[in-house]
Nucleic acid binder design. Structure first.
Lengths: 198, 198
DNA sequence: GTACAATCGGAACCAGAGTTCCGGTTCCGG
DNA sequence: CCGGAACCGGAACTCTGGTTCCGATTGTAC
């Protein structure tokens, strides 16, 4: 029997500078990609983070892996938004808040909207990891039962429509709020829409 | 005075094979790009057309130029759709037809939707060359005056919303018709929507 | 039929962006 | 403090895909 104390814990604790640099890289990547989208360059990200490209690759062995990490991160935020919506009493208002808030998050992050529209292989696992579809189904179902949203809307429609909105942010004069409003009206149940006008 | 007959007409008539090849290239490019989007490769296009890359470049001195040519082409089709819509008597139906038909055209051509969502510098001249905005304004205005479409919709919204739809075609289970329907409902005037339900 | 200019084909070239590599540096346990 | 493993930086490499070049070919005017 080897004495127990010689068994080094298999999880090597990361060196402090490594941990710090990883954080710097993530922060820089988030900022760059929010502005420039997925085509932001590794070189630039590294420079912003104040490290060399090599360091970036030590932490994320590939650009896609970095993108994926950021995507997961964003979806956690979306999950929080959904949870917050579920805390709102009025189901219709909850739904609207959820949609508007998610749209805002996308507006602020070009990379996210690109992942949504053209990287299903990245988006799906990220969405799944936070149980996004279930959450959406909850928010939507509640609004439908309350008669605020049309019956024939399906949970999968929501991400799809978010994708759709994602496309519009680049246009010369896109006022996303207007489009969100139009889509919300399109999603409303006829009754709800009529009620809104009084 | 030089004898008039020696003055060669400045417009050199293109050789027959050149004209034919140009057509082949365009056709091949259209097909490839409809399927694969803007990232379709010159090499592949050339192969499909049965010519060498050099030949492609003789006719379109750059990939962007080729893309532009195809875009112009597509916009001509959209213009025709708009004209056809203007021939429909019922303004509301005309509007709906126009939207649905344009959406269909986009569904069938990935490159077009990519140009719409991420190449304003290509799209704008193309749209302008066929007077797209005016046409849209006409179709929309008529529907609005007839009370079929909400008053606060603006002509620029339409291309924007088309852009939006363009984003959704790639998703795993996108039934574009549903989304077009939702957006149409969102665009309808409350009266029109109510009337629809009876 | 001939000549010559336009055209063609595709190998070679080039630029950009991701990725690798390794000598130098830094943290950390003893 | 010291030794060495972990980590860093960034020059160099690679791979991809657009673009160029030029000898061979082909259409057309005479």
């Amino acid at each position: 029997m080897t004495p127990p104390e010689t068994i080094t814990p298999p999880v090597r604790v990361q060196r402090a500078d490594a941990r710090r640099n990883r954080e710097l890289v993530i922060r820089a990547a988030r900022k760059r990609m929010a502005r420039e989208g997925l085509e932001a360059q590794m070189e630039d990200i590294a420079r912003d983070a104040g490290v060399g490209v090599g360091t970036v690759y030590r932490h994320f062995s590939t650009k896609d892996e970095l993108i994926e990490a950021l995507a997961f991160d964003r979806f956690e935020r979306l999950r929080d938004v959904a949870h917050a919506a579920l805390d709102i009493d009025d189901p219709g208002a909850a739904f609207e808040t959820f949609i508007r808030e998610s749209a805002r998050i996308q507006t602020e992050d070009r990379a996210l909207s690109q992942v949504l529209t053209s990287r299903p292989e990245v988006m799906q696992p990220a969405a799944e990891s936070v149980g996004m579809l279930d959450l959406v189904a909850k928010v939507l179902g509640r609004a439908q039962r309350a008669g605020a949203v049309r019956r024939d809307a399906r949970p999968e429609d929501i991400p799809m429509l978010m994708c759709a909105l994602a496309g519009t942010f680049k246009g010369p004069f896109a006022s996303t709020d207007r489009y969100v409003g139009i889509i919300l009206d399109g999603l409303r149940s006829p009754d709800a829409r009529r009620a809104r006008l009084t």
